[in-house]
Write a protein that binds this DNA or RNA. Sequence first.
RNA 1: GCCCUUGUAGUAUAGCCCGGUCUAGAAUUCGGCCCUGUCACGGCUGAGACGCGGGUUCAAAUCCCGCCGAGGGCGCCA
Length: 428
Amino acid sequence: MDISRTHLIEELNSSMEGKDVIFGGWVVDLRKLGKMAFLTVRDVTGMCQVIVKGDSMSLLEGLNRQSVVRVLGKIQASKAKDFDFEVSATEIQVLAKAEYPLPIDPIGRLESDIDNRLNSRALDMRNQKTASIFKLRSKVLASIRETLIKRKFIEINTPKIIGSASEGGSDLFDLDYFGQKAYLAQSPQLYKEQMTIGLERVFEISSFYRAEKSHTGRHLSEFTSVDIEAAMMDYTDVMDVLESIVVDVFKNTSENCKTEQHEIGYEIKVPNSPFERVTYTQALEELSSMDIKIEFGEDLQDSHLRRLGEKHPGFFFLTDWPMKLKPFYIHEKDDDPTLSRSFDLQYGYLELSSGGRRLHDPEQLRSRLKEQDLDPSGFEEHLKTFGWGMPPHSGWGMGLDRLMTVLIGIDNVREVVLYPRDPDRLKP
RNA sequence: GCCCUUGUAGUAUAGCCCGGUCUAGAAUUCGGCCCUGUCACGGCUGAGACGCGGGUUCAAAUCCCGCCGAGGGCGCCA
């Protein structure tokens, strides 16, 4: 079977009139008008109208929508509304036939519900709205890497199978590792900190796992996290890095992804920077003025964050959280040891990222572990690295899937994840 | 773990509240016929559905119960 093509569809144009071309794609639409027919064929780069006339009508035998075809034909001028040229077919080969009925309608005239689309996710990629979301996601990843590499960050890959569930906090998935108990990593936290010893500035973009039975539009059991850790940077420095990453993502996609924005029907708006910075203490005062009383040291619930989000629409940093709300490795402030050098990046009520300055003194780490009722002996593999000249360092982790929802103005992370995993969905 | 909503052809829906008019309607998809410039082509025609189980009733898509599926919220979430 010859599957070669001379052109991608985007490479075809009206100046090629009279030229013989071969291209491939899937049949989007087929309109038969007696002794002539029009079909639209799409490949990943674009869509093209193909015309069949007179004696060639037999080419249409066995042809149906969504089937993959190889079209041989000649470029000619078109009278079509949306095309200034078309291809007059001399041969149409069906390379792969699409069955009927298909489980969803990929043309997108009728929008199938999310459950059906996720059950048929590969076919859903023929829907240009869905495909555009994942083209944007790819652009976002490229943009993040570009910004970080420009700032001397080195991309790393840490293990996802880990031997100790010692970090506390959310539940981990466990698994049998040749007879030993192992876990799926919920974060690269300890590894990325260790890497600052020799690589100084590192980042990782990878899947992590949390065994929480959350049923919301913003939680998944498997999610993609962007993590950085940087030696010789304080928390405000890595906040600046985060801010520039976010602004670059919005700028790059807004300027370079016009087609995708058109397909999803949403215009990406670049946020103003610098982002507002609100301390935890200020947030308590703001909430107090709304008659919401919260004691210092209490965590902010979603309902509180929603109220704060109304006051600070868009991106803003919530900084200087109480130490008691933060994990053992977070560094306190010099002028007030009850406060931490930490921050969350919020988009309205939605938490996109959290990070801060880390402790780099092993003795301080040991005593902080005890304060939080964690056993330092479970952390010896980690703590020993802090005796080898651990530089002061800061970092953060950001939920990529959540950033995607903010970028395109939707409220369900399942839309921006190819095969989402949540407590009720393990397949496909 | 708790709460709310929901389930009708391949898809997406009307009907349900207020039982009989439902022989379940329109769209799109699919099949057949007609059509040489469509562009959500058009015209004629045909096929295709009440999630599963029980109950109430003369009568159930419609009301009730259970199960299963789906969507959402709360909680959980260094």
